[in-house]
Design a protein around this nucleic acid. Structure first.
Length: 491
RNA sequence: GGCGCUAUGGUGCAACGGUUAGCACGCGGCCCUUUCAAGGCCGAAAUACGGGUUCGAUUCCCGUUAGCGCUACCA
């Protein structure tokens, strides 16, 4: 266990898919730990499985990490470029007697069901676990070599005793060596298996803390054995519990969005996503949940990592997002809103130049009603641009009730347009008085007229308070939208 | 099947031998109010089950059950 130097940690995804939330959380924990401890966080792509490997997915994974704000200090390293190192390690183990060549045909993975349901499967599993090649006589081995038979290199696991390692989350662990099979280190293709490549790389890269998913907990004894066989000191392991879907099974596509890029596309803020993710399986030890990144960093500790699997709760993620939408400094929010409007093709540069203040104020007015970034694109048509198109269908829907209460409503709307048009000053109180005077003079409830007017000028029932909306829209837009609404109201 | 890990409201976390079991999301209600939000207040809701240990167990030990993981020439 290396303790005197600064910690070095890594995130090691394999490019067999996108960056999913579980991987993202693992990466985040590593990053937080490195930042907290003043250590180094490096990235390593584990691409030794040529069959499943999709090199084109690497960039997407890196993008996901960038979006999350998880920046790596070193790498990315690619295992596919370090194959010689693994072969050399396997040879070394072969020479020292810690490993042996195996001439068995590769065992096709049959899965648990097969092992349970048919004898053939069980046999295969059993054969894989106790390889006979380990006891091969010298003569037979000679013969195999002479005929150039292909072979894999297996680790000669000890048959007795126990193997221990330290886990910062699950505590000291000990497993009986009898439970550890002679696992493959180097495939007959010459490519290393995961067990070999991780250990060789983690030694070579001087990794001090391995923070990874708990699905690796059961395999860790094998790696601890390898460290010893390679005369290296094992690092501190820290296995973090898995993230599950609402049905308590491993998070997968059928649970809906599982890739971080999908959340990015849906309009979640990286800060919010990060905050939410950090609290899945980790706690700062107090009840405060709204933690900005700097607080996450200063409070992060492996001792706060939970041992129970967590269910991914989208509702809570959305709550975090709306919290960030409310609390983010306006300048930071504006950056996101700009990106969102650019995405939807609604952005105009005047909003960051001559109309900057107006725009900021309008965004601020809208944000309490916003849960995801794309909501701003929904607002844009009515609040930011001139090409507002009064939707007759929407009008019919929203006006049905008010119209029933007071059939004179269209008449009042017409009068209101005139009254507003004649206003010498355009501000909240002026609009307020104009409308209320009209309402009381005509014996109509102000609230009714207010609600009807809101629908008329923004095209929807959900909107900020009317008079603030009016101020933001400006006199000409309000009056013209009101007049434009009239014909469809009367009809 | 074997081995292992885990178990606090529906969900995420607190309480690390003594609390009326706390917070948050979600849910319900109320307040605010010009719609919808945001915000404030209130409420329903949990220690899986059974044994121990202890003056005292959510907390420690054992068993059961359940969930998950590993058991591949995947990672």
């Amino acid at each position: 266990m290396v303790t005197d130097s600064k910690p070095r940690v890594r995130f090691a995804p394999s490019p067999t898919g996108y960056l999913h939330v579980g991987g993202a959380r693992t990466a985040l924990f590593n990053w937080l730990f490195a930042r907290r401890e003043g250590g180094t966080f490096l990235l390593r792509v584990e691409d030794t499985d040529v069959e499943r490997n999709r090199p084109e997915l690497v960039e997407g994974i890196l993008d996901g990490l960038r979006w999350l704000g998880v920046k790596w200090d070193e790498g990315p390293y690619f295992q596919s470029q370090r194959l010689e190192m693994y072969r050399a390690a396997a040879e070394k183990l072969l020479k020292s007697g810690a490993a042996f060549p195996c001439y068995c045909a590769a065992v096709q993975y049959v899965g648990l069901e097969a092992a349970e349901e048919n004898e053939e499967g069980a046999e295969k599993i059993a054969r894989a676990a106790a390889c006979p090649c380990r006891e091969l006589s010298a003569a037979l081995r000679e013969a195999k070599i002479r005929e150039g038979a292909p072979y894999a290199i297996r680790f000669a696991a000890p048959r007795e005793g126990a193997t221990r390692f330290e886990d910062a989350v699950f505590g000291p662990r000990e497993v009986q060596n009898a439970e550890i099979e002679d696992f493959v280190l180097l495939r007959s293709s010459g490519l290393p298996t995961y067990q070999l490549s991780v250990v060789v790389d983690d030694i070579d890269m001087r990794i001090t803390h391995i923070i990874r998913g708990a699905d690796h907990l059961s395999n860790t004894p094998k790696q601890a054995l390898l460290y010893h066989a390679l005369s290296a000191t094992p690092p501190v392991f820290a296995h973090v519990p898995l993230i599950l879907g609402p049905d308590r099974t491993r998070l997968s596509k059928r649970h809906g969005a599982t890739s971080v890029s999908q959340y990015a596309q849906e309009g979640f803020l990286p800060e919010a996503f990060r905050n939410f993710l950090a609290l899945l399986g980790w706690s700062a030890g107090h009840d405060e949940e709204f933690l900005r990144t700097s607080e996450l960093v200063s409070r992060f500790a492996l001792s706060g990592v939970s041992r129970t699997n967590a269910i991914f709760d989208r509702a809570k993620l959305e709550w975090f997002n709306s919290q960030y939408l409310q609390k983010l400094p306006i300048d930071e929010l504006l950056l996101y809103v700009k990106a969102e409007l650019q995405r939807s093709g609604l952005w105009q540069s005047i909003w960051e130049n001559e109309h900057r203040e107006w725009f900021a104020h309008t965004v601020d007015l809208l944000r309490p009603r916003t849960r995801l970034l794309p909501d701003f694109s929904t607002w844009a048509r009515a609040f930011f641009s001139d090409d507002f198109d009064y939707d007759a269908d929407a009008r019919a829907k929203f006006w049905a009730e008010p119209l029933k209460k007071n059939p004179q409503l269209p008449e009042f709307v017409g009068k209101l347009a005139d009254a507003l048009d004649g206003l010498p000053e355009w501000n909240h109180d002026a609009c307020d008085h104009a409308l209320r005077d009209l309402a009381s003079a005509g014996g109509i409830k102000a609230g009714l007229l207010i609600n009807a007017t809101r629908v008329a000028i923004v095209g929807r029932a959900v909107a900020p308070p009317l008079f603030e909306t009016m101020v933001v829209l400006g006199k000409s837009r309000v009056v013209s939208r009101l007049r434009r609404a009239l014909p469809s109201l009367a009809g």
